[in-house]
Amino acid sequence: PQPPHSTTLPSHFMKGAIIQLATGELKRVEDLQTQDFVRSAEVSGGLKIDSSTVVDIQESQWPGFVTLHFVVGEQQSKVCLDVPPEHPFFVYGQGWSSCSPSQTAQLFALPCHRLQVGDVCISISLQSIS
């Protein structure tokens, strides 16, 4: 397997970063709510929001990373992701969450909950054409 391609996260997770929703509305990253993602997917076309449930969190084979195991969408597909522990995910009804909220706070000043098995994260996929 290939190692994760980057050890630095983009600055859009930095507290105060300006995010443009698909409606055109601008919000700060820390102010985003579940509905902002849902609404954006609805109006963007071609993208759909999936519910991705965390089923396992393990140490990665790559130093400094964790491996997250998700089951994704209605089909309950299994997907693994190697990410740095400070990587934030948006959990339904809870908001930003990471495996290491303290590191996320240190690097991005973004307040986070601790990501746990059973959390349901927002992810996106391509909308299938019927």
Binding site: H12, I19, Q20
Partner: peptide, 25 residues
């Protein structure tokens, strides 16, 4: 003179992972 600061604006979909299920063979 104060130069206007450019502010980066990021698209919403850059914040959430793209988790495409692997296609069955």
């Amino acid at each position: 003179n104060v130069e206007p600061r450019s502010v980066a604006v990021f698209p919403w979909h850059s914040l959430v992972p793209f988790l495409a299920p692997s296609q069955p063979d």
